[in-house]
Amino acid sequence: MFDTQSTSATQNAHAAVVDPTVLPAQEVEYSAGRRVRRWVAELVRQPGLVLSLLWVLLVIAWAAAPTVFTSYDPIAANAAHSLRGPSGTYWFGTDNLGRDLYSRVVFGTRQSMQASVVAVGLSLALGAILGMAAGYLGRWVDDLAMRVVDVLIAIPGLLLSMAVVSILGFGVTNVALAVGVAGIPGFARIIRAEVLRIKSSTYFDAAQASGTRTLAILVRHVVPNATGPVLVLAALELGGAVLSVSALSFLGYGSTPPAPEWGSLVSQGRDYMGTAWWLTTFPGLVVALTVLAANRIGRALERTGVEA
């Protein structure tokens, strides 16, 4: 009895030592292959997603190297060519100072995207700290943090951003901060929920029972397991941030002229709605497409990412 037990125990122990080097590797290979295949199938099934990805790639390329995509100076005025409609020469037409609108949209991408990414990054970072503290420490910290979040949620996001930006003053960085602040509650809530979920799992108990330090538990167990849903939210929030940043710069809080920015381009064209439709239409379309694309990608991540 004892022997067999001990043998099986040693066998088990052996398996426990040896198998992890073999089995999980197979599992990873299997799941990665499955994941890739699922992604490909997903893409083929959904041309909208492919277009969204291509559009986002294009926008990133515009932001990274605007000069590659344009042949006109986005700032130099050329009054002789003012208010020309879209054509082969000027793809998006020109504004009343004769500046090529396409160049201005492309050069404006960097400011708009930078601000949006910074905003989401800020929401994510502060939301993560707040959410983790609330979820992990619980008790009064949880109460306090969640009441702060409740208050932030009670104020409509754009209104909150406007309040913050009017305290901070004009400028793209300030707009990014303002939009970022408004995004904190979403991240704080989801991260808190994830922490609570992980806290009730057995591996968390095991880690705690084996005396792992708090920070290590957070970094090794909580963070990796919470990333999936948080990434989905980040992709969705990015779309929202693009919209909020554009809205604030439409209202004049954004970049200082003549530097172009998507929202301020729409704003500058608004007096010409009746006479030069392209001034508002093209920058507006670019904003709308970017927001829709980010949303589409976020949805796709949500579907595939949660199970993985």
């Binding site: 729409v266 439709w277 507006g284 379309l285 709308a288």
Partner: peptide, 8 residues
């Protein structure tokens, strides 16, 4: 935003 832009 896009509708307003398109209908203008």
């Amino acid at each position: 935003l896009s509708l307003a832009a398109a209908s203008c």
